[in-house]
Amino acid sequence: MSLHPSAAASTAGASIDSAGATRGIAWREWLGQPGVVSLLTIAVLLLVWQTVTSLRLIEPLFLPPPAAVWAKFLSVSTTGFVDASLWQHTAASLTRVAIALLLAVLFAVPLGLWIGLSPTARGVFDPLIEFYRPVPPLAYLPLIVIWFGIGELSKVLLILLAIFAPVVIATATGVRNTDATRLRAAQSFGATRWQLLRFVVLPSALPEILTGLRVGLGVGWSTLVAAELVAATRGLGFMVQSAAQFLNTDIVLLGIFVIAIIAFGLELGLRALQRRFVPWQGKA
């Protein structure tokens, strides 16, 4: 080991300072940031889209130019499409997902806690959840419609089922991963079973629960179009579906963009929530 760190540092500094290299490194650093690369990718894609449509390489019926989609965005925002504005469609979809999410928190989290704590509950519910989880929502949608009709209940239920499994599984995993010495510590202070659950197990599982909600919300949001296929009069999925029937490709594209942007926003929101409520994640 060198006893003269200052000497070593100055040599290293000299090599970086050598003229043009500095500018090269700064440029590469700027380009190396993930955000910059992502923005560039989007810009390139938009440019390709614009070029392909201006050169009429693809019929506007199949791929309308960006400007047309933007114009549709403005008109659907104000005058609306199929008796409802873009915001009303969006609000209808978000309300369904929000109700499903709320129900998932109310039922899936306690069930996950139970499964994580009790081997019996695990034995009972694990096969049930693993049975329906890999089935695509569209496959059991007809059954839900037969049982629960074509109203709001069926739509919310379909989204709820999609959110349910990841939340239950994540919660149960979180519970089982509770640090054994932390439980022992609480026991040595005389904690009751209920206190162990409330003060040690639940906070320990919180990071996993939030991850489960994040995954579940992603799956639930992507089930939306399927849920709104049946007898909906509002919703982003319904909007895309009915626009497709009239070959309104610009509205289809618009709908897809709005669905994607909202999904991205939800993901960012839940990540922020995770940072806010479990700042210790990965640190302790």
Binding site: T181, A185, S188, G190, L206
Partner: peptide, 19 residues
Amino acid sequence: HGPGADRGVVFQDDALLPW
């Protein structure tokens, strides 16, 4: 018989609650 508040324990890996 079992853990109790008359005996406090300090663990090697601290077992503190990070939340």
